[in-house]
């Protein structure tokens, strides 16, 4: 994607792998089984958490990537 010039924000709970493969913008996800949620939370709180994660990703896309 990035070779084609489209900026990507990689949301994952396995950040070391994202770093290893060279992702430039990385956001820590909530867990392997639900990157964008948390099944232990009530639905409302879970969605709020998801909103926070997505906003972090958007923030990362708005900013220069820190050099890895």
């Amino acid at each position: 994607m990035e070779k084609a010039g489209i900026p990507v924000c990689h949301v994952t709970s396995v950040v070391p792998v994202a770093k290893m493969v060279g992702s430039n913008r990385i956001v820590q996800g909530q867990g392997i089984v639900h990157v964008m949620g948390d099944a232990d939370l009530p639905a409302e709180e879970e969605k709020e958490l998801r909103r926070k994660t997505v906003l972090q990703a958007i923030e990362a896309l708005k900013n220069e990537a820190a050099t890895p």
Binding site: M1, K3, A4, G5, I6, P7, V8, C9, H10, V11, T12, S13, V14, V17, A18, S23, G29, I32, V33, V35, M36, V54, A57, I58, L61
Partner: peptide, 20 residues
């Protein structure tokens, strides 16, 4: 590469990639 080509064609400006 294939996905990038299609998104380029669809004029996508940014991507959120979720990985398990």
């Amino acid at each position: 590469r294939e996905i990038a080509a299609q998104l380029k064609e669809s004029e996508v400006d940014a991507v959120i990639l979720t990985s398990t």
